[in-house]
């Protein structure tokens, strides 16, 4: 069961998994992310992040997606 703890994707630890609960952005951002499968209810695992506010890479099912740091700041994840 999820313990209900919510974090911002950008601050999540590498290797942890969780479920996307919301995206705090405008319609455009929500559309672009959901086109790639990043949307509320989706389980993700953080694969890695680059230094100096670089992109965050996440695993969704068998696909990997790289998300810019600013976007990763707007994705809220509920940890497992």
């Amino acid at each position: 069961m999820p313990d209900g703890k919510q974090v911002i994707l950008a601050r999540m630890k590498t290797g942890r998994s969780g479920t996307v609960v919301r995206i705090e952005g405008g319609r455009g951002l929500v559309n672009r992310l959901s086109a790639l499968g990043v949307r509320p209810g989706r389980r993700i695992t953080k694969v890695g992040s680059m230094f100096m506010r670089g992109p965050v890479t996440i695993q969704l099912g068998s696909a990997q997606v790289a998300v810019g740091f600013g976007m990763a700041n707007k994705i809220i994840v509920e940890l497992d």
Binding site: R32, L33, L36, P55, T57, S62, A63, Q64, V65, A66, V67, G68, F69, G70, M71
Partner: peptide, 10 residues
């Protein structure tokens, strides 16, 4: 400039 958002191919 917009941010990076891409799929990683296997």
């Amino acid at each position: 400039s917009p941010e990076l958002l891409i799929e990683m191919p296997p």
